[in-house]
Amino acid sequence: MYSSLRALTSGFGQGAKRICATRGVAQITSIHAIPSVRTTPATLQHSQEVSNLRKKLLPRPGLLGVKRGMITWFTEKGEQLAATVIEIDNCEVVDHKTIETHGYNSVVLGHIDKLKNVSEGDLRRYEKAGVSPKKHTGEFRVRDEQGLIPTGTELRADYFAVGQLVDVKAVSKGKGFAGVMKRHGFKGLNASHGVSKAHRSAGSMGASQDPGRVLPGKKMAGHMGVNNRTVFNIEVLHADADAGILIVKGPVPGPNKGFVKLRDALKLYGKSDI
């Protein structure tokens, strides 16, 4: 390339002539000469429609229940398990939300009959659904309109099959202001070797003058508990619809008498449209 340039400019003197030659080589076609093509508009990732496609959802809603305590459970082989008793107390479908009205499909459930101190607005809402007023309601998103169970339907404990896996969501027990060892599982400092009054403290907060500050998100002492927590893929051991009792394997977040939300195991049965 360079040698050919040299050949082109060989007849002229050095200096300005070389610039002339490079100009000739760097010619491009005018953009106005290219016919324009209409491209398809980019999909808006933040829109509700695309979000609905992306979201991993279940075909049917779950159940609302009340945690009632833990018991011992024996399997037929004689294995001893810890199990949690969950009461399903008159859980009924109260309302629907649809794509037309809210942008997504969901079923609103209510449980535990409330006989006193119900506001007039609530009374009208339950009148419309055809169910008695409820103490607590919860919402479950479903994949499509086929999952919208008719309002007024009672969902009983045998909604879940014995042996299937479920997720249980609840608000965990409050622990108050907790130190780093309890809250984040830090190891703390030494018990001896000159450590003074800092056996359970966090240690270093980060580097020195270079950032000159503590970086955001640093794990420190603070309020612990009272968070939404979900236990995934726990087995249903027993379901008694007439008695309204559901027994699941292992522990469930929150105190006794706390409200819990149960659904089919999302990681197993959930599916997104993309």
Binding site: E87, D89, L123, S132, H238, D240, A243, G244, I245
Partner: peptide
């Protein structure tokens, strides 16, 4: 106001029932 569904287990505590 619709009547509530009948009480299960005659109102017995579910843990003692099971």
């Amino acid at each position: 106001v619709y009547e509530p569904l009948p009480k299960k287990r005659n109102g017995e505590n579910p843990v003692s029932y099971i």
